[in-house]
């Protein structure tokens, strides 16, 4: 009897650990689209060198993320894409250089993307807020590398406030990670000192599960 109780307790704990997800009104599989035309969704990048700091931003983010609400850890899938030519740094000439063949070469490699592969760690910060360590394929300049990013996801059930932004339930995702440009064959020695090899990338986007 003791062994049965012990096994039962272990199973309960295991189910709770491995089925971590949101505790919200919604249930089952949800698919969130991040095709925002209002400029709210964005990806930023930051480079710092003794010569100058470069801040960049794009608001043209597209993609979908899907998961089972009660089992995000075991079911999270999705892809986010950005048109490389949409990146801006506040200086037109610098933007042209950045998109040219010496740097991102946007004509040859028009898309930057991140494809989710698996969740490595998941922590519940609140009923509708999860912190995750996600492994995925990051592609830029035509080269794909597996990276690990820290992300925070906030699930908002549809209500009067969310309805002012978008129909349906909302999912807000924020994440920060660092990439090394030379890993992706982006290494322009002519202007090399003006841009750091390590680039901090931040993303902040909101999607809905109504597909628009």
């Amino acid at each position: 009897m003791k062994k049965v109780m012990l096994l039962f307790s272990f199973l309960i704990i295991a189910v709770n650990i491995f089925s971590q997800g949101f505790k919200v009104k919604a249930e089952g599989a949800q698919v969130f689209s991040f095709n925002d035309n209002n400029g709210r969704n964005q990806a930023t990048f930051f480079s710092t060198t003794p010569l100058e700091d470069v801040n960049g931003l794009t608001t043209e983010i597209n993609g979908t993320i899907s998961f089972d609400v009660r089992n995000v850890a075991g079911s999270l899938k999705g892809q986010i894409t950005i048109p490389a030519k949409s990146l801006k740094t506040g200086i037109k000439k610098r933007d042209e250089d950045m998109k040219g063949s010496g740097w991102l070469d946007v004509e040859e490699f028009p898309v930057i993307s991140f494809t989710i592969k698996r969740v490595l760690e998941l922590k519940s910060l609140a009923d509708n807020k999860l912190q995750a360590k996600v492994s995925g394929d990051f592609m830029v300049h035509g080269i794909t590398k597996e990276i690990v990013v820290d992300a925070t996801m906030i699930y908002l059930d549809e209500n009067e406030q969310t309805g002012q932004i978008s129909p349906g339930d909302l999912l807000g995702v924020t994440s920060k990670f660092t990439i090394t440009l030379s890993d992706y064959d982006i290494d322009n020695m002519v202007l090399g000192k003006r841009v750091s090899d390590k680039i901090e990338i931040g993303v902040n986007f909101v999607g809905n599960n109504k597909g628009n």
Binding site: I154, T162, I165, L170, N204
Partner: peptide
């Protein structure tokens, strides 16, 4: 962002 309690950037 008052709804999500996060910050975002604008030009």
């Amino acid at each position: 962002d008052e709804l999500f309690g996060t910050t975002y950037k604008e030009w």
